[in-house]
Design a protein around this nucleic acid. Sequence first.
DNA 1: ATCTTAATGCGACAGTGTCGCATTAAGATC
DNA 2: GATCTTAATGCGACACTGTCGCATTAAGAT
Lengths: 148, 148
Amino acid sequence: MPFANTEIPGKFQALLAERGIRMTEQRRAILNVIETAKRHLDAGQVLRRARKLEPSIDRSTVYRTLGLLKRHGLIDELDLMHLDGEAHYYERKLNRDHIHLACLRCGKITEFVSDLFESLKEQIENDCQYQIAVARLEIGGCCSNCRT
Amino acid sequence: MPFANTEIPGKFQALLAERGIRMTEQRRAILNVIETAKRHLDAGQVLRRARKLEPSIDRSTVYRTLGLLKRHGLIDELDLMHLDGEAHYYERKLNRDHIHLACLRCGKITEFVSDLFESLKEQIENDCQYQIAVARLEIGGCCSNCRT
DNA sequence: ATCTTAATGCGACAGTGTCGCATTAAGATC
DNA sequence: GATCTTAATGCGACACTGTCGCATTAAGAT
């Protein structure tokens, strides 16, 4: 998935094994797809790609696996301003939260990290007495390419 | 909708009239529902409430009207971390963007404004050369009530 | 009162995501 | 390696959201 690709492939598998979760051919295929994806994929795209590795995989297995990874905090679920239909997109969770900018004209997704974002989250935790589990900042607008 | 309820009821109707958009009984009912709502409503809830004022209203009219209001920048569409199903929630657009905090335990939605958020948006516009149309910051976590 | 055309209701549809249930296979145990 | 327990799978059915085309209705200008 986008951004620093410093993650070790197979990390998901190791992390799930640690927690005593069974590994199946289907899961291996799905994890592989997500770990090696270069862009944000929705559930349907994950299914189609995983089927190339393991043709028997069913739609519901993909949803169940995505749910599993979400519950274990290994992936984040995004809407990306619903640029294309109503599906959700998934990406590996990295050490640092990032902001998603979706160009409403060309559909390009840009990622951005910011210390200000980190400060804002801290402010919220303090001022609102909130314990943040997920923070999703999505921006829709017009990218520089589309304005020139 | 939540927050400072300083808006004049009927404002939507006036704004749409200004732009030469036809007013119908159905639209009046839907606008009324959204303008007087005290919490975030999804399309289905808007439909049910609007039907109490104008029983003939169809589902597709609600969707078309929500689309109209969105296109004219009068309402914002939210996901609220999909606390309940996959529907979208709608709220009157106010002068100032606010952050939505969704408690994953009790489902309570809290709203929060922050200068830091405004600065962050400025930073993004500058650093990324982006023209922001919509900025949606949604946070999932645990509210103070649920932790005591 | 007439006319144009935007807006509506209706029906059909595609897509996403969920669930129950019978079957299969992971991986622990011997 | 064979056996066993139970988690995971595939399948089918389902609910729900959101979209669209089309014939009909009614807004509001004339």
